Amino acid sequence: MSFARPSRIALATLVCLMAVSTSAKDKEGSKDHPLIGRYAGSEITAYKVAEFNEQRFVNAPLDIRADGETFTEANSFKVEGRITDIRYDAPKDRSALEIMRNYEESLKSKGFEAVYACANESCFKGKTSVYRFNFVAGDGPINYRYDTGVRYLLAKATRPSGDVYAAIVIGESKGNPLVHVIAADLKPMETGQIAFIDASAMAQSMAANGRVALYGILFDFDKAEIRAESRPTLDEIAKFLKASPALSVVVTGHTDSKGAFDYNVDLSKRRAAAVVAELTSRYGIAAARLTPFGAGMASPIAPNEDEAGRARNRRVELVAR
């Protein structure tokens, strides 16, 4: 699938319209993706970046009747890398078609190739309301912004430094067009980031500080199920606790500052409870010695301004009780 070839004059005009820019009304701390830019006059209303995460991109019509509003292997594929998610309010006097044409030509000029595109009814198998495309961009709470139409484009740029996928989702309603840009800069995950602490080091830290911070207990994003890679650290925690039978601890979950405060407190508590459950059921540590507690984002040990700081704040601590 490829883009149509624009004239030189049209291309120059379109690239100007799609330049990377800023607006005084942009969400604080937000910025355009450097390869994608924005439609002139648009304002950023939501923005988030994950240095490494997974993202599913739609590449086939959605079968809402059979699957509901969900990603499946039949309608999408998964990639991993740096994920940028930006939502814009576009100028009210511009149509979704005009905005999408600008994105198409701008992306083509930067070496992108179209992977999949659809508009309105062609985005679905069978008859359904077009607003139901909202979940593709995570716009469920504002699905009314897709009331009268939707346009979608997925494009890919092949680059020596790593491929880039760009999904453009445009919703039409009685108000301003909504533009949602989701980009995935494919890159391998940084490894060697987990500082392994054995039972001896845990004992030393507990004796010196009354607590020990653990980074080897891993969870998927927004989940409380312990990942299999956490087994070596759990083995060492059990060894440490069995060597100190008189010690009782508070198992404290910590998050970074992304997300709502109350939600993060609950998530961190559920993660702490999962660790306690594993220590009691698999290793036979007495439940009376373990108290799960969720601190959420309330006790950072580094600034949450960048991913390096946020990674230090996402941890489990054992605190002497």
Rank of each mutant, 00 (worst) to 15 (best):
M1Y: 08
R5S: 15
P6V: 05
P6A: 06
C16T: 03
V20R: 14
K27N: 08
K27V: 12
E28R: 11
T45M: 15
A46G: 11
A50R: 06
F57E: 10
V58Q: 14
D67P: 00
D89A: 10
M100H: 06
S109L: 07
S122D: 15
S129D: 15
N134C: 11
V136Q: 10
R145T: 08
R145W: 09
D147Y: 09
V150D: 07
T158L: 12
T158K: 15
G162A: 10
G162F: 10
I170N: 01
K174W: 12
H180G: 07
D185G: 02
T191A: 14
G192K: 01
G192I: 02
A203I: 04
R211P: 07
L214C: 11
L214K: 11
G216N: 00
G216D: 02
F219W: 04
A224M: 02
R227K: 15
S230G: 05
S230T: 05
E236H: 02
V251M: 09
F261T: 06
D262K: 13
R270D: 14
A274H: 04
A277Q: 03
E278D: 04
T280N: 09
A287Y: 10
R289M: 05
T291E: 15
S299Y: 13
P300H: 13
I301Q: 05
N304D: 15
A308M: 14
N313H: 08
R315W: 12
R315M: 08
R321P: 01
